[in-house]
Amino acid sequence: MIEAADFPLWAAVLVSILAIAGSLLTLLGCIGMARFTDFYSRIHAPTLGTSFGTIFIVFASMLYFLVSGQRPAVHELLIVAFVLVTTPVTLMLLARAALYRDRTEANGNVPDPVGQDVVVEKEGGA
């Protein structure tokens, strides 16, 4: 556990605020995902946790390890970079898969494909 008795107060308060703000944002994202009524609305919700939720918590971790002087705390930035780059990719792939499935099954008010890049077979759902 934390035994740093000489951990400065301002840093403790700042770490606490950052950690709680980050987890609250993630919680709000997940509540949104549970509450919204259709898939395309739900896809917006997790980005709360992956944008500033992650950034706040990672900054809390960096600040804690920087002030307590246990190690040079910069490699958490890798997590931020990694999450920022990968989340849009997964969400876009998932959204395209959902569009494809909704079109083949013709359910929901999904717009029709524009151009020739997506070929939709009407028979045989996924």
Partner: peptide, 27 residues
């Protein structure tokens, strides 16, 4: 003092995160 603040707030943050994961499990 600061150790107590940190311990409690980190515990709270973890509980909040656990709730978030529970909502994800619900979905």
């Amino acid at each position: 003092m600061s150790a107590a603040i940190l311990a409690w707030s980190l515990l709270a943050a973890q509980i909040i995160m656990g709730l978030a994961m529970a909502f994800a499990v619900y979905r």
